Amino acid sequence: MGEKTIMHYSSSQKILLVGEGNFSFAACLAKEFGSAVKMVATSFDPEESLMQKYSNVTSTLNELKGRGCTVLHEVDVHTMSQHPQLTNRRFDRIVFNFPHAGFISMEHNKIQIKLHQDLVKGYFTSAREMLTGSGEVHVTHKTTHPFSKWNIVKLAEEVGLFLVEEAQFTRADYPGYINKKGSGRKCNRTFRVGQCSTYKFAKPPLQPYFPS
């Protein structure tokens, strides 16, 4: 079977997907590749909770497992590098689509923004440890106010990652992907994407050594 690609992702890459929610993004990649043996897809919620939140998630999970995907639940992005099934693995792409820390206030509130920033920075810190030498950490995120206040690029730089590319994100590029809310009574509903980008980050290249 030859290499298959969809947007920024390839069947030859070892891919870790975090915060998957209804797992429809993972399913999209798996269908395009025809196999998911190099993919790991994770959720923060327990499996039982997902079944209560999202319709059709059981069939999606069964499809992923049938294509060879490793599916893990209760994976916290802050500590995922120490997860027993992830600690010794390295990935070419680590992906978090539309991270959200849950609501304690309105999105424009400084406390709410700080909550989101802590989530994203924790993700960057863990993901950096899990990359292959040429690997990339991806975040898909809204670019309009107040989401622009998260300062995604600055958060990455603070943990030693640099921006490789900011690519426009269009949901239609990923057939079958349905972004869902992660919390609240209406979590099975999609939300308006609007203007957003996939930010790609990598570790800085090694500096050449010049002996004195």
Rank of each mutant, 00 (worst) to 15 (best):
E107C: 01
F96N: 12
E74D: 14
P99W: 10
V137G: 05
K149T: 12
A156P: 06
E166R: 15
R128A: 11
N62G: 06
E129F: 00
Q82K: 13
R90W: 02
A36Y: 06
P99Y: 10
D45R: 04
K149D: 15
I104K: 14
S81E: 15
V95C: 10
V37E: 15
S212R: 11
L50F: 03
R67F: 09
K38T: 13
S59C: 03
T140Q: 05
C28W: 02
P204T: 02
C187E: 05
I152C: 09
M51T: 11
M39W: 02
L72M: 09
H100E: 02
W150Y: 14
L17W: 06
K142N: 07
V40H: 05
M7P: 00
H100Y: 13
L131I: 10
G133Q: 12
P175G: 06
S49N: 14
A41M: 04
G182H: 12
T132P: 01
L17M: 10
Q52G: 15
W150H: 14
S49G: 12
K53R: 14
D76Q: 11
L206W: 02
H145Y: 15
K203T: 10
K4I: 07
F98M: 03
A30S: 14
Q85F: 07
G160V: 07
S134L: 11
A127Y: 00
T79Y: 11
H73S: 12
S212E: 11
E47I: 10
F25S: 04
N188H: 14
K200V: 05
K110V: 03
S24D: 08
P204V: 02
C69M: 09
C196L: 07
F103K: 13
V120P: 00
P208L: 09
A26E: 05
S126K: 03
E32D: 03
Q117H: 01
Y177S: 09
K180Y: 10
S12N: 09
Y209D: 04
V37T: 15
V120G: 01
V193K: 11
T125D: 04
V153N: 15
H145L: 11
